[in-house]
Write a protein that binds this DNA or RNA. Structure first.
Length: 663
RNA sequence: GCGCCUGUAGCUCAGUGGAUUAGAGCGCCGGCCUCCGAAGCCGGGUGCCGGAGGUUCGAGUCCUCCCAGGCGCGCCA
């Protein structure tokens, strides 16, 4: 909203009244919303804070401020309520007409690029619903940030040289007995497609097999170590196979996420961080600034470690090994280097290449890092002003280490703008596991737990594409039964939007630090607090607009005309408050988005959208529009419907939810 | 042992910096389609807000302690 927004105007007017009435200039004027619009449209609890300074009861201060208040162009009046709240009432028609014409503009551009890193699935298995939560949260954050005027770069980090990929290579070689060339030939895209198989699903099973294979004989772990070092060495068949496997898997992940509308700008690969020696650069800087130091003696003899601030000695999280005694760098060390690169604090950069999606269809242009011979014409990646790392809360400790690394290097502001977007995992209840994976037997210990975390190693999880497929088929059946005249293409498109809407809303509706105990029935539901409920309400609003346009003329639903003609005062008092309530709820969307981003509680916006849909549905049943005979009443109702329709399409769009034409 | 998170209705969850009788969804029971699409609406709730103290005129909300559960704390990633 512009600086001329009601919120801004109210802050100023209250501040002015404070000066006049009390001779006090409050540092800030907090704003909130009254419980109902009957009590006011905006409120300020500022008098509670002033009470301490002025040594008077809040209520008395409120009376004085209200007496000195000048309503200006936005407000009708300011009332004192409760123990000392100031409740302001907007000039409704003025506000309605403004909101109809400029309600959904993006905020003005904010300088400084924001980098959001999300998804980051280990490229050795199909994506599961835990990855889905990460990607949906990350992608939605990106959409909200862009709405708030930020330039955002989306990174999806590919750990293509880790043990998880190595385990797969071991599995192909030792369990399947295949040579690298066999793997490429046997699992070519063409051949798998012809057989109706999927590489990511095959690897899902193989990975679990490898884990069991290790457990049968722990000495087999030497195979992993050997594979890993061959991978690090490079330029050998094992390393090539690892790269092949990782690349195939990444393509699958990209396709899976694309089904949900989730896209990326660049894929930085760990293999390139190694090849381009990012770590060597970071290591030098860390030594130079004494952010890390080498230990002589003790349990970490010969290691380079970082001491953690604010942790008591011996508490367990007081010291982190960054470089092992054998000279190799740990995962978190590489992560520090990567984080430094994101802020442009390293002396090095990747080369970039257009990602080869073939023979999959290239769904959108995408860049991948590479170690040499890059393509020209790529954007200037990295060098972010602020970085959000979307990673589940189990990595909080390591994320603290990364941020402290920056701080110790003297980059305090970068450290403070290095934000761990932490969220809890998606887990399965023992009952859900038995229902979804009946072939899997659970131990006594597992059955006793309230939930089981998903585990690629154990092959325990719900694959993202399976869930989407189930949603799609359910949505298709519903759409067909309700719309006999729809052609197949339209049914498919509608079902896709519904399936995606259901899934994305389900992933967004929980607050971030709550473990989502995956409930298949709830995830598949189209009724109640679900994405399709929201979509359906918008489809209904669209039908009304269409009918009004058909019957009374297209200009009757045009926002500019409605802004001029709609007059809330033609409504009776009780009806008016319900109409007004919908308008005011829509007007709060920008503030809700701001709050959602500031708190990283993206569910706030999802919840707001749901409350809006509820209010709309109730409105819909109570107030006819097309059949309303009084033209003025019809016009103001049409204005409210227009506002709802446009506002919700926009808001749902920010959650990655598209509204179908019909459903 | 230390750190972080979570305990609110049968189940799943909201509840911002103190505003009436603590709210939704699911489930259950009852209504509502000659009327803009019933994926909807309306009605039906006796909740030790985990427990105990404390601050306050006032606490689900703030502070302390305790209990229960989850997750971290590796020269794994």
């Amino acid at each position: 909203m512009s600086c001329n927004s009601p919120e801004q105007a109210l802050r100023e007017a209250i501040r002015e009244a404070c000066r006049t009435a009390l001779g006090i200039d409050p540092e800030q004027v907090p704003l909130t919303y009254p419980p109902s619009t009957a009590m006011g449209d905006l409120a300020s609890p500022v008098c509670f804070e002033l009470a301490r300074v002025a040594r008077k009861p809040p209520r008395a201060i409120a009376e004085e401020i209200a007496g000195a208040f000048h309503p200006g162009e936005h407000f009708r009046k300011l009332e004192v309520a409760g123990g000392g709240y100031l409740n302001a009432f907007l000039k409704r028609n003025v506000f309605l007409s403004r909101w109809l014409t400029d309600g959904r503009e993006s905020d003005a551009p904010v300088p400084g690029k924001i980098i959001v890193e999300h998804t980051n699935i280990n490229p050795n298995k199909a994506a599961h619903i835990g990855h889905l939560r990460n990607a949906v949260l990350g992608d939605t954050l990106v959409l909200y940030l862009r709405q708030l005027g930020h330039q955002v770069e989306v990174q999806n980090y590919i750990d293509d040289t880790g043990v998880q990929v190595a385990d797969l290579v071991v599995g192909f070689g030792r369990i399947r007995g295949m040579e690298p060339a066999d793997v490429r030939e046997r699992y070519s895209d063409e051949r798998l497609k012809a057989e109706g198989l999927r590489f990511d699903y095959l690897c899902w099973d193989l990975y679990a097999e490898v884990t069991r294979w290790y457990e049968e004989d722990r000495s087999r772990l030497e195979e992993r170590a050997a594979t890993l070092s061959a991978m690090e060495e490079g330029n050998n068949p094992v390393a090539d196979l690892a790269a092949f496997v990782a690349h195939r898997m990444v393509k699958h992940h990209l396709c899976t996420m694309h089904r949900l509308g989730i896209v990326y700008d660049v894929l930085p690969k760990e293999s390139d961080i190694l090849a381009l020696k990012f770590w060597e650069d970071a290591f030098g800087l860390l030594k130079e600034t004494q952010a890390i130091h080498k230990l002589e003696g003790g349990k970490n003899d010969g290691c380079w470690v970082m001491d953690l601030h604010g942790a008591e000695e011996g508490s367990g999280e007081d010291q982190k090994v960054i470089v092992r005694s054998n000279g190799t760098v740990t995962y978190v060390g590489k992560d520090i280097a990567y984080q430094m690169w994101k802020f442009g604090l390293l002396h090095r950069d990747f080369h970039y290449r257009r990602l080869d999606w073939s023979p999959s269809e290239a769904l959108y242009p995408l860049w991948s890092s590479c170690a040499d011979r890059g393509d020209g014409g790529h954007p200037d990646f990295g060098k972010g002003h602020t970085v959000y790392n979307v990673i589940d809360t189990r990595q909080s400790y390591l994320q603290r280490v990364v941020a402290q690394g920056l701080e110790s290097l003297g980059h305090r502001s970068e450290a403070s703008r290095s934000i761990h977007f932490a969220y809890e995992m998606v887990a399965l209840t023992p009952g859900a596991v038995q229902a979804l994976l009946p072939e899997r037997e659970l131990s006594e210990e597992e059955l006793a737990k309230s939930y089981l975390e998903m585990s690629g190693r154990k092959g325990l999880g719900v694959k993202a594409d399976d869930l989407l497929d189930t949603l799609m088929s359910r949505a298709t059946a519903e759409v067909r039964s309700r719309n006999r005249d729809m052609d197949n293409a339209q049914v498919a498109d509608t079902a896709r939007r519904i399936a995606v809407g259901a899934l994305r809303y389900y992933m967004l509706r929980f607050s971030r630090n709550r473990v989502v105990a995956f409930d298949l029935d709830a995830a598949l539901a189209f009724e109640g607090e679900t994405g399709p409920y929201l979509q359906y309400s918008v489809v209904r609003s669209r039908n009304i607009l269409r009918k009004v346009a058909d019957r009374f003329g297209a200009e009757q639903v045009e926002a500019g005309r409605l802004a001029e003609q709609a007059d809330l005062n033609v409504l009776a008092e009780d009806a008016l408050s319900e109409h007004w309530n919908l308008a005011i709820m829509l007007s709060r969307v920008p503030a809700v988005l701001r709050q959602a981003v500031d708190s990283l509680e993206l569910a706030l916006a999802a919840k707001h959208a749901y409350l809006l849909a509820q209010a709309f549905n109730s409105f819909y049943h109570r107030y006819p529009v097309v059949q309303e005979e009084d033209e003025q009443v019809r016009t103001v109702r049409t204005a409210i419907i227009r506002l709802y329709h446009d506002g919700m399409i926009h808001l749902l769009g920010l959650m990655g939810i598209e509204v179908p034409e019909r459903m």
